[in-house]
């Protein structure tokens, strides 16, 4: 049971970040590496803000805004200064590393174990009945993720959201609609990095500390979750396990969240097979490789059958 709860907790925290990666990778078709630094940005900001007495819930919003600002910088470098997409992300990622350390007060590790967080505060202690308390963390995480998902779904169905989807699909059409495609990309990157920093904030409050290296590999985790969720649960053609049971297509955002939990389950399975925590990054990259190969394999099959 604790294993399952652990997987759900980890999976839901990273699901918010995966929603961000879904925006850049799937909608914008932009390999955005700046998420590797906006995740710890959210964590650093949260740790410092909570120590300074800011309300834990407010840090979520602050983190989102800080991440969005960083996303704008990536977008600005790419769109206005015409630097390649991958490099723009790397520039922001590298620069933010130092900035994150500054935000954390010059320390690479900031504990906030003794502070109030969204998971541990007098309000919860008072109002949650004892039998529910083991599930409180998962419940809160679920609500945060659900809120992000619903807001993103709503946004994608607004006029501005339509334009965001169009720019990844067909840039020329956005220009034809007399809109600056560069601005649309910047908005998309801002949203994506906002979600990522928000996930970093949740992560920090959940673990009870900020650590400068938490961001390493964020993008790979996000990509793996997105590809796993989308490929397994919402294939372009044919039927997915979900659609054959429920006779309805899954929303991509839901698939991404499911993919994130699934991914954490795979990692957890690998560790329970006897691999050490030190091997985590190796497992991550091998698992990512497997997911990539399998998903291209599936696509090929679909093509030959068509």
């Amino acid at each position: 049971m604790t294993v399952i709860m652990g997987i759900l907790e980890e999976g839901l925290i990273y699901a918010v970040m995966a929603l961000g990666v879904y925006i850049t990778y799937k909608i914008l078709d932009f390999p955005d590496l700046s998420v590797d630094s906006t995740f710890p940005l959210g964590a650093a900001l949260t740790a410092s803000a909570i120590l300074a007495g800011v309300s834990p819930a407010l840090t979520l919003i602050l983190s989102f805004l800080a991440g969005a600002l960083a996303g704008c910088v990536t977008g600005f470098i790419h769109v206005k200064l015409k630097v390649r997409d991958l490099l723009s992300g790397i520039i922001v990622m590298t620069g933010l590393y130092s900035l994150n350390l500054r935000i954390a007060g010059g320390r690479a590790n900031v504990p906030i174990f003794t502070q109030e967080t969204i998971f541990e505060n007098p309000f919860l202690a008072e109002h949650v009945p004892a039998p529910l308390s083991p599930y409180v963390i998962v419940l809160i995480l679920f609500l945060i993720t659900l809120a992000c998902k619903v807001l993103l779904d709503l946004y994608l169905n607004t006029r501005s959201g339509y334009l965001l989807r169009a720019v990844g699909d067909n840039e020329a059409l956005v220009t034809s609609l007399a809109k600056d495609k560069g601005m649309v990309k910047i908005i998309g990157l801002a949203l994506a990095n906002g979600f990522t920093a928000l996930a970093g904030s949740v992560y920090c409050q959940h673990k009870g500390f900020f650590e400068i290296s938490v961001g390493t590999g964020t993008m790979v985790i996000g990509l793996a979750s997105v590809i796993m969720g989308i490929q397994l649960l919402t294939p372009e053609t044919g039927t997915s396990p979900f659609s054959s049971v429920f006779k309805k297509e899954l929303r991509p955002t839901t698939a991404v969240i499911a993919g994130s939990v699934l991914y954490k389950a795979c990692i957890s399975a690998a560790i329970s097979l006897g691999l050490e925590a030190n091997d985590l990054k190796l497992i991550t990259s091998i698992l990512f490789l497997i997911i990539l190969v399998v998903s291209t394999e599936r696509r090929k099959k679909v093509k030959t059958h068509a």
Binding site: N157, T158, R159, S160, G161, Y162, K179
Partner: peptide, 12 residues
Amino acid sequence: NKGKPFNLRRGT
């Protein structure tokens, strides 16, 4: 929607 602001109103 060409020529109109692409804001947070419903896409369709």
